[in-house]
Design a protein around this nucleic acid. Structure first.
Lengths: 112, 112
DNA sequence: TCATTTAATCGTAATATTACGATTGACTAT
DNA sequence: ATAGTCAATCGTAATATTACGATTAAATGA
């Protein structure tokens, strides 16, 4: 028990759930917002900015990186992190489609 | 340790993370899609539809209900579940704003 | 070289989530 | 009343997530 039964669902459903997981923590939201607002960014800056331990932030960054939402490039002794703009657009559309699918055509058809 | 440090983040960030959590499981995605596709729905139908145990689905339904995404009304011996259309629109906009905030103004400003 | 800086990784504790059997409560039909 | 149905809730096991100190690895500068 305890593990998500992914086999019961199709890949679009599993995909969207995995993406949603990336956004399901305020630190990762904050990281993405911070990366969007600044042209470049290093881990150390985020540690000061967010107030979480360095190891914790590194862990969050890895999750975002694994989903392709951000990219890092080594810059001397530190690392520059940026949003992956193409991927971001892709994910945005995936959520938009999800929300649009649930638009009700006929409000009267609903019961509660 | 182990618990999310919500105090480090603002309420918009915490809110969005909580909403994302609702979408962070394929069963809940599937439930929402199913509710959107049918005009009415009862728990029993979902059990057959999804293949998870009745108790598990009830638990997922409660989470969606607690966030206001769905509503249930007792209909004889069963319960009708529906999307909360107003709330849905609200949440859709919240995600849209999030995705739009991260739109890059100047692609050249980015490094990786 | 050697100390310093920066970020990734390891190990692990605390907490949360997922799943389900069993039970309960509310309503129906006989 | 009593049996049957449906869904919520309880209790709990399995697993996942979150957080952080400690360590490691890689690059820099003295």
């Amino acid at each position: 028990m305890g593990a998500t039964k992914t086999t019961l669902f199709d890949s679009a459903q599993n995909d969207l759930a995995l993406l949603a997981k990336a956004f399901a923590h305020p630190a990762r939201i904050a990281i993405l917002q911070y990366l969007a607002s600044s042209t470049s960014c290093i881990n150390g800056t985020l540690v000061q900015e967010l107030g979480l331990a360095q190891a914790t932030i590194s862990q969050h960054l890895r999750e975002l990186k694994e989903l392709g939402l951000i990219r890092g490039s080594i810059e001397g002794t530190s690392v520059n992190y940026c949003l992956n703009v193409e991927r971001w657009e892709e994910v945005r559309l995936q959520f938009q489609n999800f929300f649009d699918l649930l638009i009700v055509k006929d409000a009267d058809a609903h019961c509660c």
